[in-house]
Design a protein around this nucleic acid. Structure first.
Lengths: 342, 342
DNA sequence: ATGAAAGCGCTAACAG
DNA sequence: CTGTTAGCGCTTTCAT
């Protein structure tokens, strides 16, 4: 690839002048400017951002650490972030961790080594020790899709969202309401489970552990395959007590659960109501379409990037975490209790 | 961030020695080695890859240009590529083009500027002029998920895959077989449509244009929302002739189509058989589960990266394009013609 | 075994 | 207006 030096040689000017032209500084004679531009085009010149970064100590690069990009929900996050980054002249380096702490550590080191200006992070484990040390380094970090005590975070209130779902199910007349999902999230409490319990309590119902189908938390990919198996094996037990409505902790899990129930001859929503969480684009398309909680993905991507950019420019910024409101999307997968086949 | 210079100062050695230790060269006394390592740890040293890249003219960075990362199929591709890249010490920069030629051009320039060692590309338009010029520059490029005449490509044979679907539908006894999808792909022929026609011909059926529901090609995201609308408006026409089986050009389109048909009171597969293409993870979960064509996504990601790496090391490599075999996955969305409600 | 020094491609004073 | 020069953090050759 051509360098400024080569252009300078061809155009008979100094390399500094080439730099001035390329970067659009004023104070270069029109004649030389044109000469340089022509040669740049002719030699198919491309600025070497590596050199520029080194010199300016500015990379226009941010890191995006995500647990599982093959989950449509995260894919949409990546989409939103990439769009916003491009609009601001940034590129993003993606690191997929599979919710593995070790890989997350490696990703962080790798990104630091690449001189990224900041990191957008979906943590594998909210209170892993290495996050504390990351906090010490003066590298801007914004946690997304989860609440964080250590970093500024942009996320929907998962507890409140779950409560909304439960309230909706109660409003439909359901009293036997179950939960399908993990009860903890790599060591921490799973907010959606907390919201579920809170919702049950608010409605003066009793928490019945028979209605809770626990699945593996942590590895999204694995756990999502896990839901089908767990529900299926639950349905195979002889002494089972089945709820009339279930809240599955995310859309993917809901899809799997619906599949499992229907394979056993239950119809959703005619026999059992099922709701999800995320409002992925597929929740609308699925049969039945899924009642779920909408997370404003574009807003999350947008805001998170904006905040990160602000942190990058003002090194002392101490933004409050942003808690976005979840909203209930009612579709076909949940039905009035009265209408249910009994 | 600490530099080698600072470590050198603290440890009382030259910066060159620090470099030797950090890079694990032999020929440094154990004593100094330990000294340097200790200080490196103490100062939380991270190699500056920007500087290293500049010096070595090697970035360990590859670009991944994709049309639409929110399509689960591409998300899985990204997943596979990222995994392979990390395993080889590379990072990837993701560029989403929305199938927009202009954005693709910008992405290519941006990546060249970043000194990526190679590009994995899902082209927005196979024969766009700028790809010809990209071919001239000596930057390794591997096209994925599509066949390419200009670059080495790794993809499933779309024509053959489509023929498999049609053959399957014919084997089920269907004679009125339709196609839902674009007939061309930003200027070029859409291989799946070609495969559809070929399949119809092979089975000695007549190509009936009434059975073809054309949708927008090009922008995956838009076109996928388009399918629902197009099928719906087709079903609203009074003089419609409906096929008994439809091949939708990808899974997402198939989901939308199923949704549209069912909204109009048709049951899939009881009234109408529908098949897709891609075998995304959701095709198994969907109700009804989707008959589709499996693309070996992990293999594509794996192979493409491997080939790219080879091109990077041997600058003159001229690998043949790899055409992978599609395979038919039969699920619930297609049923014997005899069993269909008439 | 180790230090000094050149240079990767670029930017930004500084001098003229 | 434009050229000269120093230097970003690193690797590597050449002395010693």
């Amino acid at each position: 690839m051509a360098t400024m030096e080569e252009i300078a040689e061809k155009a008979g000017v100094s390399q500094a002048t080439v730099s001035r032209v390329i970067n659009g500084y004023q104070g270069v004679s029109e004649k030389k400017k044109k000469l340089v531009m022509d040669w740049a085009r002719k030699l198919d010149y491309q600025l070497n951002m590596t050199a520029q970064s080194l010199k300016n100590n500015k990379s226009y690069l941010i890191g995006l650490i995500i647990s599982d990009i093959s989950n449509p929900y995260f894919a949409e996050i990546v989409h939103a972030v990439e769009k916003e980054a491009t609009r601001n002249g940034y590129n993003i380096i993606i690191c997929n961790t599979e919710s593995n702490i070790q890989r997350e550590k490696e990703a962080i080191n790798s990104l630091r080594s690449r001189q990224v200006e900041g990191i957008l992070l979906v943590p594998a484990n909210k209170n892993a020790a290495h996050l504390r040390s990351l906090q010490q380094k003066n590298l801007p970090v914004v946690v997304i899709t989860q609440f964080s005590k250590l970093f500024t975070s942009v996320a929907v209130d998962h507890v409140k969202g779950s409560e909304l779902i439960i309230k909706h199910l109660v409003d439909l007349g359901h009293t036997k309401i179950g939960y399908i999902g993990p009860d903890k999230y790599s060591g921490c409490k799973e907010d959606k489970f907390e919201g579920f319990k809170k919702g049950i309590k608010n409605s003066n119902l009793n928490l019945d552990s028979d209605y809770i189908i626990k699945t593996a938390g942590g590895l999204p990919e694995l756990s999502s395959q896990d839901v089908f198996k767990k529900v299926t094996s639950f349905l195979k037990t002889s002494d089972k007590k089945i709820a009339t409505a279930y809240f599955a902790y995310n859309d993917l899990a809901a899809f799997e659960a619906i599949k499992a129930f229907e394979d056993f001859g239950y119809e959703v929503p005619l026999d059992i109501a099922i709701a999800g969480f995320d409002n992925t684009s597929l929740s609308k398309i699925n049969r039945p379409s899924l009642t779920t909680i909408s997370q404003p993905i574009k807003t999350i991507g947008h805001l998170a990037f904006e905040i990160l950019l602000e942190k990058i420019s003002k090194s002392e910024s101490d933004t409050e975490s942003i808690v976005l409101s979840p909203s209930l999307i009612i579709r076909d997968s949940t039905l009035m209790y009265e209408k249910i086949n009994k």
